[in-house]
Amino acid sequence: MSALIRMRLAGFLRGGRILPPAIAVLVVLGVIYGGGASPAAVAYGYSAAALFPVLAWQTKLLLDTEPDVQRRLARVAVGPRSEAAAGLLAAALLALVVCTLAMVTPWLFHGIDTTKAVGSGTALGVLAHLLAVPPAVAVGALASRAVTRGVRNGVAVLVTAAVLVVVLGLQGSITPWLVPPVMATARALNDVKAPPAATLVLLVTWATLWSAVSFTLYAHFRRTRS
């Protein structure tokens, strides 16, 4: 499966399709850190939330790079489960690289306030990004051509999910659990004081369950749509 992951990443990077999401990441970082230094937890909380739609979009682009017939050839070569898993893992790997760059870059431009809780803030920031990656990959996968079949449906799924994550994630939302806890994480980190352990456990459980449901849905669609 690792050979298929490498092949898909190589196809995505060589084809140049990574450029639009890479530029979007730079814009997001510019907006977040352009205004001066902020405490690590606060900055990284916003960074994870702002990167969520970009990571989902990047996942869709990565999965859609391969022609449909090549995806079927991969399926014949490694079996349907490994073929689907390889795509998700390739997207997750790429998302982790982007998150790492997004966390390291502000240090180069003094975007992080080094006088306040740097260690715990960075640890919380790592957690926030790790909580954003699986749901973002799941949304991107559900918007991919293998599931939605057409460009219009794919973009609709992606945009709807990105908007709902913000709208249903606002404070006072009636159904916050319909979306992953991207906004809730950013809110929990929006304080120099670390959030209570119970909040963190809730966020991790929420993100895990939401991702599990979404990946199950993806697996179902991949089984039933060829």
């Binding site: 196809g11 084809g15 017939v69 090549q70 050839l73 014949v76």
Partner: peptide, 11 residues
């Protein structure tokens, strides 16, 4: 499996 048309649109 040899598909009817090989997917040549790959880098």
């Amino acid at each position: 499996w040899v598909p009817e048309r090989f997917p040549a649109d790959q880098p």
